[in-house]
């Protein structure tokens, strides 16, 4: 069936250098439609840079990206209509309240006012931001910022969600809520890509994983294939070739 072969996201040879530092070096990724894809890697591996290039927020030095077959850099407007994005640590319209942010962006996307009002209400409620009606986004806590970012990504009911570290700084209850929402989204035919360095979480929620290290993909595919018989964390440490430190030095701390 063609639906099985359809790809939500395809990155082809993405490459990006910042000065002398090669942040992303020839990355190929295929994310099947309907999958919950986890992009994992150590700090500084190039996850954020890869995702930014894949959604059209950072111009790659080489390579291209397609979203449901639409080239992100050639048919930008169509591609943007298909995705919802949560970037890492970007600013928001800081001097609006959460409700104003959602209303404004919904109307700018051309959704009918009634639909915008209804979705805004529901999203604020689900993410428990409705109690902060007078708070401007600039006054939000880190967790609240993450949640309003997620609400923005969901607002226009995209087909693919690309979320950079969606669970970082979010409390356990909200994290559970977000997990439930994302699972409902994939169950309804949507596709999700998240980046994370929390292996247990990725193992729990994702069905596909890609492991990035030093700007290169070192393993990718269905979760079961990548982790083999052990845990994802073991596989990850093997793949990345890292050695857990912390046993040497720091004698003064315990003396």
């Amino acid at each position: 069936m063609p639906a099985h072969r359809e790809l939500a996201l395809r990155a082809i040879g993405l490459r990006k250098a910042f000065g002398d530092h090669l942040a992303v070096d020839d990355i190929h990724l295929t994310v099947p439609a309907g999958s919950f894809y986890g992009l994992v890697g150590p700090n500084g591996a190039g996850k954020t840079t890869t995702l930014a290039m894949a959604v059209g927020l950072l111009r790659p030095d080489a390579g291209s990206a397609e979203i449901f077959g639409v080239d992100v850099w050639r048919d930008t407007v169509r591609a943007k209509g298909l995705i919802g994005v949560l970037p890492d640590s970007n600013a928001m319209p800081e001097r609006l309240t959460g409700r104003e942010v959602l209303t404004c962006l919904g109307l700018l996307r051309g959704l009918p006012p009634a639909v915008v009002a209804e979705r805004t209400d529901e999203l604020l409620q689900v993410f428990e931001l409705d109690s902060a009606e007078r708070t401007l986004v600039i006054e939000y806590s880190t967790g609240m910022r993450k949640k309003i970012g997620l609400a923005v990504a969901l607002l226009h009911a995209p087909r693919l969600l690309v979320l950079d570290e969606p669970f970082e700084a979010v409390d356990p209850v909200s994290a559970a809520t977000i997990r439930t929402i994302l699972h409902r989204f994939t169950a309804g035919g949507g596709s999700v890509i998240i980046s994370s360095h929390v292996m247990a979480l990725v193992e729990q929620v994702c069905d596909h994983v890609g492991v990035i290290s030093d700007g290169r993909v070192v393993a990718a595919g269905p979760l079961a294939d990548v982790r083999g018989t052990g845990t994802l964390e073991d596989a990850f440490v093997d793949l990345v070739g890292a050695r857990t430190g912390g046993t040497e030095g720091l004698a003064w701390l315990t003396s």
Binding site: G56, L57, K80, R109, G110
Partner: peptide, 8 residues
């Protein structure tokens, strides 16, 4: 980024 990610 939000302006850029919103078509048009």
């Amino acid at each position: 980024w939000l302006t850029l990610m919103t078509p048009g």
